[in-house]
Amino acid sequence: MIAVRGLQKSFGTARVLRGIDLDIADGEVVALIGRSGCGKTTLLRCINFLEEYDTGEIRLDGEELWYRTTPGGARRRVSEAEARRMRQQMGIVFQQYNLFPHMTVLDNVLLGPRFAQRVSVAEAEALGRRLLARVGLEAKMSGYPAQLSGGQQQRVAIARALAMRPKVLLLDEITSALDPELVGEVEDVIRSLLSDRIMMVLVTHALGFAREVAHRIAYLADGAIVELGSPADILDRPKDPSLKEFLRRVR
């Protein structure tokens, strides 16, 4: 499970996260929604330490991530090696897929297992093929990212993240950059992962999809979680006025 406590972050004088508390249980899918600039993507990036944060802590299965407090009370980043080890427990998928353009699809998927986790070539390849088959792209294995559609690239990116055998999958608006007719194939892949009971945190504007796959939805505004509950509570029976307003605008 993941436990986020009192997470705060500022960019200069702008406070982007003002004390986030969030628990994600094993096998749980949590969707983060809110206006652009509300801090939802920043929160996701903090969980993977692509952003540093100022105070607060994030724990994964009880282990504190990214920072250590010395006996003297100073807060210090963990070493690069430690951070790498921690990151390998998570997979992240970005809005713009971010595949490596100079590598084949299979090599993109293999990279993490081969060079970060030191899995043997044979084992990594078997894993890569299995995952690509799972996202329906085994046939494109030796193709290059730029030869694929956006939807296909995003499915490869999901396979690449899964190849790390992560405990949690972080999904950052993974369908926002796609043509509407390609959204479905990526959403289908995520649906198919639900039976694996892998933790997922997804930042999304697709409320219908969030309702369908998420166990809980967190609505963020101004860097804080304003309302947190089941999809039905958040989407059908919102209490907070700004959430009501947000839902009215989105629909």
Partner: peptide, 16 residues
């Protein structure tokens, strides 16, 4: 920058 972030998120060691 996204390429760096992808590589970092995989936890690739410096030489790799």
């Amino acid at each position: 920058r996204p390429q760096w972030e992808s590589a970092r998120s995989l936890g690739l060691p410096p030489l790799a």
